[in-house]
Design a protein around this nucleic acid. Structure first.
Lengths: 337, 337
DNA sequence: GTGAAAGCGCTAACAG
DNA sequence: CTGTTAGCGCTTTCAC
């Protein structure tokens, strides 16, 4: 083993060609698996590559060939569990594409930075979980032929392929589950209505309640996901003269905050959360949730990207992925203990 | 807004120069914030960039300039929560570097693919959570001047800067905590000993037990993280003629599997887990854990990378980051109920 | 089959 | 302060 440190210049194809005594073009063809290279040449090239420890420079290769074989994923936070990203990665890998993920941290500036960086690297496409208020800035990218797919929330101000969860359907599943078990006073605590999913889910809840003839005045509490805000909302609906018997929480972090706020009272009101998360089954009682089809969302997002690549002019598609109710106990506590 | 789709060729600096009626070099200098560009020229260039919607091609820029401003992170799974990655990202961003994360999925081949890809893209450095049996293949990268930093586990067969958790110290914290509370028969269930952390932690446990004069024959159960294997190990130590009163689990997934296996009995034996994880405080009882210094590990890894960049020939460093015991209840149940 | 030459889009020298 | 001239390391015509 060679222990020379910091050999300054990395070997290039020209070095390999010289070492092997062949033309540069022949090395290129060998490296790219072109089988029109004679076996003796191939062997000499292989030896030269080994001895110089040559590695092709992807930047140069991509610059010249045009394609990068890379797809960018701009998601909320790459350091947190992200089943959709996982599915995108798996599908992309199967298709021979590499996924580069970047965090947007729910920050508009970071989102734009990420997209800029991906577009600047001339990635083959972008899959984005939109956060910005307005995505008009994406139009230029799309116009220049970059396939863009949005998931979880629609990108506003721009027409792109989109994959969404069936938010109204999920809320309806939760509501009907509780209603059938006899609950009539049901509260909804969720995200700020300025956030897409927060708005859509709150609206869906109002619609469900109205359709069932159940009350919802004072029972819908959208707002920031903030421990004290959620504790207060919970207290207000539980200590009402006519207290609620069940609560629906609008997303995973709200659910966790609600469980924390309930403390020892967790299990005293029926609770159904939107979003499944790891360990939800280990709580006591187990948490009943409306789970999103993460795997399907990720797979679909990638497929929309791929079909856009093949048919740049096909019409924009919007796919809605169904949710699934998972019964674990917290939504099934007896109505009158 | 321009709604032409798929304008084939993206505009280049040459296009901008032509449009603005200046030399290409001047555009380059404008784009790179070189303030030696006259204000009138700058304005014309700005207008041309806007009208053509020009974006610099990072690939070309990087190829020519040599630097990529990017650091690769090869971690177990980018789709799962990863506090260390989070810290690396934050530190790197503050230093103006972008982090590109790739999953290794605990698969040796994927690890090599990721490293190959990062090295091929001529990234400025690599931070890796090693999984492969042997990392000799990294030597060539290091020799060619690529800074490599390992964390969580050492890279075998190659000398690189490394950041590790104080595994023996963490196990000692758990053991002593239980011992002081009167526990004498304590079991350890953890990872396979072929895995570095699995080995080190099991050994540390044996050492602690021996030093305290506590028994450990038949009480140390390393092996695959497999629900049935862990359930069996747990059953064997609990249904012993002389049953254990406490259990230490060697990592997060083992802890979760153990809690699952205990079912309603969770809380019947004292349990301290290595690794903290989200929602550990919401379990009943709350989970007492030995938490790793994720933030410090990530920050340190990045700093080692940066110092290596500046001083390529400084000696290899190995940093050990302390753990912290977090008391939440599962490790403090009464010894004799 | 293989090889010479031209460029991908940009930045780094240098001269003006 | 600006323009001209070379390349970065690779793939791609096109001859041979």
């Amino acid at each position: 083993m060679n222990h020379v440190r910091a050999r300054q210049r990395r070997p290039t194809m020209a070095d390999v060609a010289r070492e092997a005594g062949v033309a540069l073009r022949t090395v290129s063809r060998y490296v790219n698996g072109d089988d029109t290279v004679g076996p003796d040449f191939a062997e000499r090239i292989r030896a030269a590559i080994d001895s110089l420890d040559f590695k092709v420079d992807e930047r140069a290769r991509q610059l010249r060939s045009g394609r990068t074989g890379t797809i960018g994923a701009a998601v909320r936070n790459i350091s947190e569990a992200h089943p959709v990203l996982s599915a995108i990665e798996a599908t992309a890998r199967a298709a021979g594409l590499m996924v580069v993920a970047m965090s947007t941290e729910d920050d508009e500036r970071l989102e734009r930075d990420a997209v800029r960086s991906m577009s600047g690297r001339r990635m083959d496409g972008i899959i984005i979980e939109p956060i910005a208020e307005n995505h008009g800035y994406l139009q230029a990218e799309i116009d220049s032929g970059l396939p863009v797919v949005a998931f979880d929330r629609p990108a506003t101000g721009v027409d792109v392929d989109t994959v969404l969860t069936d938010n109204p359907g999920g809320i309806a599943q939760a509501f009907e589950h509780l209603y059938r078990r006899g609950h009539r006073r049901i509260a909804y605590i969720g995200d700020d209505e300025r956030i897409y999913t927060g708005h859509v889910r709150a609206m869906a809840f109002r619609t469900c309640a109205a359709a069932a003839g159940a009350p919802h005045d004072g029972l819908v509490h959208p707002g920031p996901v903030d421990q004290s805000r959620i504790a207060a909302a919970l207290a207000s609906v539980r200590h009402d003269p006519d207290p609620v018997t069940a609560v629906i929480t609008g997303n995973a972090s709200t659910t966790v905050a609600a469980i924390r706020a309930l403390g020892e009272d967790f299990g005293a009101v029926a609770l159904v959360g939107f979003d499944d998360f790891p360990l939800a089954d280990l709580l006591r009682p187990g948490l009943t949730v409306v789970a999103q089809g993460d795997e399907e969302i990720g797979r679909t997002a990638f497929e929309l990207f791929r079909s856009r690549l093949e048919h740049p002019d096909r019409p924009i598609e919007r796919v809605v992925v169904p949710t699934r109710l998972i019964i674990r106990g917290s939504g099934e506590i007896p109505l009158y203990p």
